Simulated scan of single mutants.
Amino acid sequence: MVTVVPYTLLAGLAVLVVAAGFPVTELLPAAVWMVVLYRWREKPAFFAGLLAITAVMVLQNPLYGLFTPVPYIYAFTVLTWPWRLAGVGLTAVVAGLAQASAAPGMVVLQGVIIGVNVVMMVTTAWVLHTADVEREQRLAAMAKLEAALEENAGLHAQLLVQAREAGVLDERQRMAREIHDTLAQGLIGIITQLQAAEQRHEVPAAWRRPFDAVMGLARESLAEARRSVDALRPAHLETARLGEALETVSGRWSALHGIPVRFTATGTARPLAPAIEVALLRTAQEALANVAKHAGATRVGVTLSYLEEEVALDVRDDGKGFDLSAPRQEQTGGFGLGIMRQRVEGLSGSLRVESEPGGGTGVSACVPWRSA
């Protein structure tokens, strides 16, 4: 409407003028204005100059009333409200002058013709403006509705989170009761009996190392059980980063079971979310526990790797291994591998187990370090 139609009308009018025998030079001012100022065709000043040129043309020859659709186009598309109303009204006056020339000397009729043009075009401009306002109001209402829907979705997600937290809290309270009545009491009983035995009889030197190991393991297990129920981080992560905690856990496990453990950290260490640190530490502890129970290994390697997009934990041993294709292989050590997989996959990570009879076992956990 702004770049094609006006110039098409100008070209068509030029052909008509030539066919009617009028000098085409009378169209030259309008053509020069529209071509030279093409870049400014969407400026109000462009419309004002074009309307003035059109008025002069109409006064010279009423035939140029056929050119008035061009300023109409610019009035409707370029001018903003309420200037659009004035621009359309002035263009209607120019168009009415061209039409009124058909009734020379009849001033009243000419006034009526001009007035009808002005009323019709101004009314059209008003109706179109009203439609634009209503459309803008509908768009604004739709935007508000979309915002409300997004807010409702956010509230719904928040309610789901709260419901989940409430469920977790209920389950934690149930676990607390169960642990207090069973596991904690049993561990306390073990510790008490060991202390009583130590007070009644001196522990032989050959028994001292396993005796102390059992005592320390019972106390550590009791503390970790209480921390798990209270949703606290593992004690190893209270004052240390993940790499240091893994090295400490590996060293204690090695001292307890008499199996050498080599811990290695690669890559540039970066701060991790607590959930990732807890999941990887628990995975390492569970993997080492499985090595102690099932592997029959002579050495173990624990590797923590900080990669570009993820952090990886590998626990590998040189034990007897097992056949991964055997049915229900994951249940050999209870729920250990299943729990490890749930922890890691809950953080958008992956857990992979590699093993073969006589070839040792490797457990690899990879977690995106931005996942939590």
Score class of each variant (00 low, 15 high):
Leu13Cys: 10
Pro29Ala: 02
Val32Gln: 04
Val32Ile: 09
Met34Arg: 01
Val35Pro: 06
Leu37Gln: 08
Arg41Leu: 02
Ala48His: 04
Leu50Gln: 04
Val56Ile: 15
Met57Gln: 01
Leu59Lys: 02
Asn61Gly: 12
Leu63Cys: 03
Tyr64Gln: 01
Gly65Cys: 07
Phe67Asn: 08
Pro69Val: 10
Ile73Leu: 08
Tyr74Gly: 03
Arg84Trp: 00
Gly87Cys: 12
Thr91Asn: 03
Val93Thr: 01
Ala95Asp: 07
Leu109Ala: 07
Gln110Pro: 00
Gln110Ser: 06
Val112Gln: 02
Val118Tyr: 07
Val119Arg: 03
Met121Cys: 07
Leu128Thr: 14
Leu128Phe: 13
Asp132Ile: 07
Ala147Tyr: 14
Ala157Thr: 10
Leu160Gly: 10
Gln162His: 08
Ala166Ser: 06
Met175His: 11
Ile179Asp: 06
Leu187Cys: 01
Ile190His: 00
Ile191Gln: 06
Ile191Ser: 05
Gln193Leu: 14
Gln193Thr: 12
Ala196Ser: 04
Val203Leu: 14
Val214Thr: 05
Met215Arg: 15
Met215Ala: 15
Arg219Gly: 14
Ser221Ile: 01
Arg227Ser: 13
Ala235Thr: 14
His236Tyr: 13
Leu237Asn: 03
Leu246Trp: 02
Pro260Val: 03
Phe263Met: 05
Thr264Gly: 03
Thr266Tyr: 12
Arg270Cys: 13
Pro271Glu: 15
Pro274Asn: 09
Ala275Phe: 10
Ile276Thr: 10
Val278Leu: 11
Thr283Arg: 09
Tyr306Asn: 09
Glu310Ile: 00
Gly321Asn: 14
Leu324Val: 08
Gly333Lys: 11
Gly334Asn: 05
Leu337Gln: 01
Met340Trp: 01
Glu345Ala: 05
Ala365Asn: 08
